[in-house]
């Protein structure tokens, strides 16, 4: 009898093995990043690498300090947050609280559709439209700046933040709303004092995932951030975030050289940062679901 079901067990095994593909690839990515970046740490002290203030990978002697790149990434990401949090969360609140059924049925798919615009198109738009505009408004030598990158990244992350935040708001039970109305609260009071706190950690998840997307975004910052690897002082200067450095320099870095390994090390650090963001988002969203009594 058992032998007759050999096929059944075979299929189960095949599926089990294939199911591990994601884990396999994730481990593979970690492994490759670690292996390819280790050589640089034999040349440059780890702390000097991270906190070094000058990034001159092609000079002789080369200098591998990625602090300017890390700071650039942080600057444009924070700048993007300033744009995408109010827009994304505000839009989500509008969709959830104010838009009627029909309006929502139209707007939600549109927001989702906008989330699918490729990043290179955003970058292109930044270069050809926003750059001359910023240059004129602020009288700058170049419009390719941290500000430009922040705006474009922010607009780009807005649909993502909006969609996830809207989902979180949807999970808030209607009973909360009704209970608040029942004690005479206005819609606005209900929104700010009941709904937003209840959906708080869900909204936080949305923001963190939006940030994670912004910090890992490559093409837009490569095209509009300006590419200058110095520590930024204002938003109106060109900067070179980590992703842009990898994308711009990998093509010219000699295979197996220090520069090549340094770029992998940047990718490793980037990976760790986004990994931490994602884990935090996961933990928060899990506790959010538990709080609202949804299954984990």
């Amino acid at each position: 009898m058992k032998i007759l079901r050999f096929k059944e067990r075979l299929y189960k095994w095949i599926f089990t093995i294939l199911a591990f593909a994601s884990l396999f690839f994730l481990m593979g990515i970690v492994l490759v990043l670690v292996k390819e970046s280790l050589p640089i740490f034999q040349k440059v002290n780890f702390f000097k690498f991270i906190f070094g203030r000058s990034w001159y990978p092609t000079y002789n002697p080369a200098e591998f300090g990625i602090l300017p790149l890390i700071l650039a990434s942080i600057w444009v990401t924070l700048g993007a947050v300033v744009v995408c949090v109010p827009l994304g969360v505000g839009s989500a609140l509008y969709l959830n609280e104010l838009a009627g059924r029909r309006q929502k049925a139209v707007l939600k798919p549109i927001v989702e559709l906008l989330a699918s615009i490729p990043s290179v198109v955003f970058g292109f738009f930044g270069v050809v439209i926003l750059t001359p505009l910023l240059q004129k408004v602020f009288h700058l030598p170049t419009g390719l700046t941290a500000l430009n990158a922040s705006i474009i990244l922010g607009v780009m992350a807005t649909p993502t933040v909006c969609s996830i935040a809207e989902d979180a708001l949807n999970y808030v039970p209607n009973a909360f709303r009704e209970a608040s109305f029942a004690v005479g609260a206005t819609r606005w009071q209900t929104l700010t004092q009941v709904i937003i706190p209840a959906a708080g950690s869900g909204i936080a998840t949305a923001i963190i995932l939006g940030m994670s997307r912004a910090i890992g975004e490559t093409m837009t910052v490569l095209m509009v951030a300006g590419g200058s690897a110095v520590i930024p002082h204002t938003f109106l200067e060109p900067v070179r975030p980590m992703t842009a450095a990898i994308a711009a320099e990998m093509g010219e870095a000699p295979m197996g050289g220090s520069h090549y390994h340094a770029l992998f090390a940047i990718a490793l650090i980037l990976f760790v940062i986004t990994f931490i963001f994602n884990v935090i988002a996961e933990i928060i969203s899990r506790s959010f679901r538990v709080k609202l009594g949804l299954s984990g």
Binding site: A19, F20, S22, L23, F25, L26, G28, I29, V32, L33, E36, L209, S212, I215, G216, E217, T218, T243, I246, A247, M250, M255, L263, F264, A267, L270, F271, T274, F275, F277, N278, V279, E282
Partner: peptide, 28 residues
């Protein structure tokens, strides 16, 4: 759970990191 977590994290890996992985593994 391990598989779930790795799917979630794989989804969050920056696209340029995929590029480097592809370069090191498939290209080289």
């Amino acid at each position: 759970n391990i598989i779930r977590i790795s799917i979630n994290n794989l989804a969050g890996v920056p696209s340029v990191v995929f590029g480097l992985f592809g370069l090191a593994v498939f290209v080289k």
